[in-house]
Design a protein around this nucleic acid. Structure first.
Lengths: 334, 334
DNA sequence: CTGTTAGCGCCTTCAA
DNA sequence: TTGAAGGCGCTAACAG
C-alpha cells in the first residue's frame, strides 16, 4: 500500500504538504492541492490510521463497551451510537464485557491501548471507584445506564424510578389493587430504582406494599419463569404482575398461559423496556418504553461535543420513559 | 501513560529486552523477565497498540462488517464471532454497511486503514467483482452469507436452497398442497436460493408452481404485510404461506389474524431464520433454523486458522438448516 | 504557502 | 541472553 512518501514523490512536493492536504489543514495552494490529490488517486493511497494515530495522538475512533451483542437491547443502542458517530466521520470500536468485572476491565484497557479518543461504557460489573479513577484519567468517558453520583455530567440514563412509577400507576389507574411485582437483581441500580418507583406509586394510591407478592429475579427468562411459578403458588390473589423488564414478562406470560390462565382477562402483565419482540407477543405486551436508540445517540453526541468540540450540541442526561398500553393489560373498571 | 522507555529505565535493561518480554518471544533470562514485569506493574504500563501495529504490521484485530446492528440476526452473529476471537485474544472492530454499496466500501477501507489482520464481511450491496479484487489484495477476507463462485474457500454460508426445500417439504408432508410463498428480494442470492429450494420441493411432490401465489418482497415487515394482503385478495385458495424470513412471517401472521383467520386452523405459516422472537409469537412460529451464531464462530475460526496459524482448526463452509415444527403449522391429515 | 526535521511508541535485524 | 540502531507512516513545530 502506497505511503505518503510515494505520494509526495509523484506529486513533486514535500511530505509535509501531502500531510496538509490530507488533513485539509491551513492553506495549501489550490494547484498544489490538486496535484497531490491526483497523485493520491493514481496510487490509490490510503492513510495508515495507526501511523496517524501514533503521530497525532488522536484516532478518530471511540471505544464502546456493552454487556453483550446478542439480544434486542444493545443492538439498538449500538445502532444509535454508530449512526451518530458516523455523521461526524468518527468510528466505533465495539467491545463486549459480559457483565463480568475482569472482562469489562480488560475491554476498557484494550480500548485505551487502542488510543480511542473517548469511551462509551455500558457496564454493570465494575465498581464505582474503578469508574471514578478511570474518569480521572485522560480519556473522556461516558456512562450509559449507570449512575455514579460524582460523575453525573458523564452519565446518560433513563429515569428508572419514574419508569417503575408509571408502570404501577397505569395498573392502578386501570383498577388494579392486587399487584405482584417481579423485580430485577437488586444489586443493579436500575432494578432498584424501578422497584422504588413501583413502591412510590403504591404508596401514593394508599395500597400496602406486599412483600410476598414481590420477587427479585435476574432480568432473564429463567428468573421470570421461576418467579411466576412462585407467585402462582403463593395463595395470594393478584390481578396484574408488573415485571422489571420484558424478558421476564415474556416468561411470566408463558407460565401463566401454560397454567391455564387466560390473558389478559384472568391476569394482566406489564413489562419494561419495549424491546422489539413485545409486539410479536400475544397478547401484545404493555410495557414502559425506554428510548435506547436515542440514549445511544446522545452518548455519541456527548463525545462529539466534548471531544470533537462540536459546541452546537445540547446534552440530555436523563431520558423519560413512557408507558405503552397494549393488550396484555386490562382495565378492571370496564 | 508509561512507555517502553520508562519501563526499560526502571528495570535497568534495554528497550529491546522489554519488547521481548512483551511478546514473550525468544529466550529472556527468568530473572530479567521478572525484573521487567515488575517494572511494568509499577508503572501500570500498557503497550500502545497503534505503535505495535505500526512497527510490526500486525494489529491483533479483525475487522467485521455487518449490514446493521439492530435486529436479532446480526447481533447473534457478532456474538459468535466476538466470542471465538476473544478465546484467541484477538479483537473485533465492528463496522456497519447499511446494505449500501458506498457505505460498505467505505467501511472496508476504514478497516483496511486500521490495519486489521483480516476482515469478516457480511455484505449485500457491493459487487462480486469488487469482492474478487478485494480478496486478491493482501488482507485475508472471509465472506458470510455471500457466495462468490471463485471465492468458495473464503465463503461461510447456509445451504439456502436446502432450507427452502425442507420448509416446503415439511408443509407438503403435513398434507398441504395449496402453498403460497412470500419470497425475499430476488437480487439477493440467499432469497433466490430459498425460492429455488421451494420450487424443487414442489416439483418433487408433483405440485404445480403457482405464480400468483408467489410474491417477492423485501425481507421486512412492510413487505410481508403487503404481500399477505395481496395473497388474501387474490381469490386463490391456499392453506399455508411459507415466508423467506421470520420478519415477513410475523407480519403475515399479523395480517392474517387481523383479517379474522384463526391460526393455525385456517392458515399455517412458516418462517425462515429462527430469530429470537419466534418463540414469543402466538402461535409459535414454525421456521427453518439458521445457525447464525455458529456461522459467525466459524468465520472467526477461519481467521484463527489462516491468519493466526492455528492449524488445528477445521473449517466448515456450508451450514445445514433444520426445520423446526411449531404451533403455527398444522397437519391437515390430522 | 512549502520544505526540513524531529519524533510518536514499538519491533526487529544485527552484533556483541 | 542482551543491546544498539534503524525504521514503520505520519504529524507538527519551525524555518524559509
Amino acid at each position: 500500500m502506497a505511503t505518503i512518501y510515494e505520494v509526495s514523490a509523484l506529486a513533486g512536493v514535500s511530505l509535509a504538504t501531502v500531510s496538509r492536504v490530507l488533513n485539509n489543514s491551513v492553506r495549501v495552494r489550490e494547484a498544489t492541492r490538486l496535484k497531490v490529490q491526483e497523485a493520491m488517486r493514481q496510487l490509490d493511497y490510503r492513510p495508515n490510521s495507526n501511523a496517524q494515530s501514533l503521530a497525532s495522538n488522536r484516532s478518530n475512533c471511540v471505544g464502546i463497551l456493552v454487556p453483550e451483542l446478542h439480544g434486542p437491547f444493545f443492538g439498538t443502542m449500538l445502532s444509535g451510537i454508530e449512526a451518530e458517530l458516523r455523521t461526524a466521520n468518527k468510528h466505533a470500536i465495539i467491545t463486549v464485557g459480559h457483565s463480568n468485572a475482569s472482562k469489562e476491565r480488560e475491554s476498557i484497557e484494550f480500548l485505551a491501548s487502542r488510543n480511542v479518543d473517548a469511551q462509551i461504557l455500558v457496564v454493570d460489573a465494575v465498581s464505582d471507584e474503578y469508574l471514578q479513577k478511570l474518569c480521572a484519567g485522560t480519556t473522556p468517558i461516558v456512562l450509559i445506564n449507570r449512575q455514579v453520583a460524582t460523575l453525573q455530567d458523564r452519565c446518560i440514563s433513563l429515569d428508572n424510578e419514574q419508569g417503575g412509577y408509571i408502570a404501577t400507576k397505569a395498573a392502578i389507574d386501570m383498577g388494579h389493587t392486587d399487584i405482584a411485582y417481579i423485580a430485577g437483581p437488586q444489586w443493579k441500580n436500575d432494578a432498584r430504582d424501578r422497584l422504588l418507583g413501583h413502591q412510590r406509586a403504591l404508596a401514593e394510591a394508599g395500597i400496602a406494599f406486599n412483600e410476598t407478592l414481590t420477587i427479585a429475579a435476574d432480568f432473564r427468562e429463567t428468573g421470570g419463569r421461576a418467579s411466576m411459578q412462585t407467585l402462582l403458588t403463593c395463595k395470594q390473589p393478584f390481578s396484574v404482575v408488573i415485571c422489571a423488564n420484558d424478558e421476564m414478562a415474556a416468561a411470566a406470560m408463558e407460565v401463566a398461559t401454560d397454567s391455564g390462565l387466560k390473558l389478559p382477562d384472568d391476569l394482566s402483565i406489564i413489562g419494561f423496556d419495549n424491546v422489539n419482540f413485545c409486539r410479536y407477543m400475544h397478547p401484545k405486551l404493555a410495557t414502559v418504553d425506554q428510548p435506547v436508540n436515542d440514549m445511544g445517540q446522545m452518548a455519541a453526541r456527548w463525545v462529539l461535543k466534548h471531544v470533537y468540540k462540536d459546541e452546537s450540541i445540547a446534552i440530555q442526561h436523563i431520558f423519560q420513559p413512557t408507558f405503552l398500553r397494549r393488550g396484555s393489560v386490562i382495565n378492571t373498571r370496564g
